[in-house]
Design a binder for these strands. Structure first.
Lengths: 132, 132
DNA sequence: TAACAGTATGTAATAATATAACATTTACAA
DNA sequence: TTGTAAATGTTATATTATTACATACTGTTA
């Protein structure tokens, strides 16, 4: 059961922008794009991003300092995320592979640590860039 | 066969500092610590860090913007890295688990992408913090 | 409806992280 | 000894993110 979050005005503006872009967006590029809608300051963007990440509507691509809309309704509130990143064209997509997510969610070792969350980033060349 | 890299003066100073610290260090904290050794500017630090990452002597913890000495001679030149991060005390350690690394190195899906590299970060509470 | 609590917003300033551009020097193989 | 790649030094600046403080909105409950 996915909890329904009613997005606030700024959250909605920013989520819609990222979602429509279809790819990762950086915070200051988001800021630039929403200035015409009245969002003027970095903090307004970061606050909305924080909330959207918290509720799982977007994810942060840590190695790129960028944010992408969640494409996978089953990755509940961003506790288990995996991405593939093309090092040539910087295309990013979310991997939804149930074997992989099961394997990682159940992973444990002898460190005594209880893992509650993970983020995985794969790098390589996408189909297009490979054939160039 | 591990290639031997002779570290330059700055690279050695910075690697030794990170290695001795035993944990992740941030770039500007490194800078502060090596100023007495004549390294005065951020760029000198970042250049050494870039090189050390490239040759696999250190890894970047992406979610923390921090750098840690490689504790695992088998993770050749940082192509396959996994870390566990305590969200309470921020302790970080490198996971060396051959099953995990085999599983991830061999991972492929139907995206047509060839993965040549990955970075995985697990989050949770370490033994100490769990028992508080 | 009034009072309250929690969430969201607005604004300015600043902190923290990282790179560009350019000049010079060192290491070392041809 | 000369050519070349790597490393260094320095200044300035770009990029990413947070602190601090004031105000407003939303929904609950007394």
């Amino acid at each position: 059961m996915q909890k329904i979050h009613n997005l606030s005005k700024n959250q909605k503006i920013i989520f819609d922008l990222i979602d429509k872009s279809g790819g990762p967006m950086k915070a200051y590029s988001i800021l630039f794009n929403v200035q015409k809608k009245g969002i003027k300051a970095p903090l307004q963007v970061y606050r909305a991003l924080d909330k959207l990440v918290e509720i799982g509507k977007i994810h942060k691509i840590e190695s790129r300092n960028a944010f992408i809309a969640c494409q996978n309704s089953s990755c509940q509130v961003s506790k288990a995320t995996a991405f593939s990143i093309c090092e040539s064209c910087e295309n990013v997509s979310e991997i939804s592979n149930s074997k992989l997510s099961k394997y990682l969610s159940n992973f444990s070792d002898n460190s005594g640590m209880k893992y509650s969350k993970y983020n995985l980033e794969f790098f390589g060349l996408c189909k297009k860039c490979k054939s160039k």
